[in-house]
Amino acid sequence: MSDLGTALVFWPSAAIMLVTALYVFITSSMARAGLLLLAALGIEGLIFVALASEFLGFLQLLMMSGEMVIMVFFMVMFMPDPGGLMGMDMTHDKRRSAAVAAAVTVALAAVAVLTDWPARVVGDDAPDVRAIGFEVMGRSMVTFLFAAMTILFAMVGGVLLAKAGGRYGIGAPLGEARGEPGD
């Protein structure tokens, strides 16, 4: 994109993204929080696209949508008061965490702004999908494999952890007798 186009897309997107991200933690409804997170990360994908990484942007949009929807399902299923109708305050230590977060933000921003970043390396605009494919299947194959294995383990582990009797397979009926949350 051109600089102007980039700017036109970037600024509003950035603003929305930051606001929605903030609201994730302000709202008292977990479902809404999940949806707001989806919005924030989706807009981020849009920013990726604006910053000439189209592949990554679309990928982000794709993955985040699926993930957040699952998250919302999960919350509705398992959490008490997912709608936030009772107005629970889900925060603690608001001031201290805000202070820490603010300090870190300021530090990072200062580094970002004040550093004398080196000039742009002359080259192609952005890597296209083909190049990324070659990268994945070529040079970064080992990393890709490890990432794949990690996913596999995570899947298996997640299923095991989430199973009714836990790892040891002790009595799913027992879990049902205790009663599932969310009734």
């Binding site: 603690h92 230590d93 201290r96 965490s97 820490v100 870190v104």
Partner: peptide, 9 residues
């Protein structure tokens, strides 16, 4: 959260 805070700092 306290662990996280400590790690962050």
């Amino acid at each position: 959260y306290e662990y996280l805070r400590g790690a962050t700092i």
